[in-house]
């Protein structure tokens, strides 16, 4: 069970961490960035009938969250296959 070698195990974990951190950066940017810290600035821009900062805080960030989880599931499953550590 497990990896062919310790190097493989290490590089699998590194790739996984890179994937997770990249997605968490987007997660942070849309909610805390667009929805909170820069909301006032973005509110100057109008998107349909919404102020953009308000839209990110009450709509946009939630849609992005959903997308992030499915992207993660897809990429993590592919990573498992690449290192042959997926479930049978």
């Amino acid at each position: 069970m497990g990896f062919d070698s310790n190097e493989k195990a290490l590089s699998y974990w590194r790739e996984n961490l890179r994937l997770v951190l990249g997605l968490l950066a987007v997660w942070f940017a849309v909610s805390y960035g667009c929805g909170i810290v820069f909301a006032d600035m973005l509110n100057e821009i109008h998107f349909m009938g919404f102020k953009l900062g308000f839209w990110f805080a009450q709509q946009g960030s939630i849609y992005v969250f959903v997308a992030l989880i499915f992207i993660y599931a897809y990429k993590a499953n592919a990573l498992d296959k690449k290192y042959n550590v997926h479930e049978d």
Binding site: L24, A57, I62, A73
Partner: peptide
């Protein structure tokens, strides 16, 4: 509430 009670699921799924 909207962001807090949905954004937690991203942490849950990834971590």
């Amino acid at each position: 509430y909207l962001m807090g009670w949905t954004g937690g699921y991203v942490l849950l799924a990834l971590c």
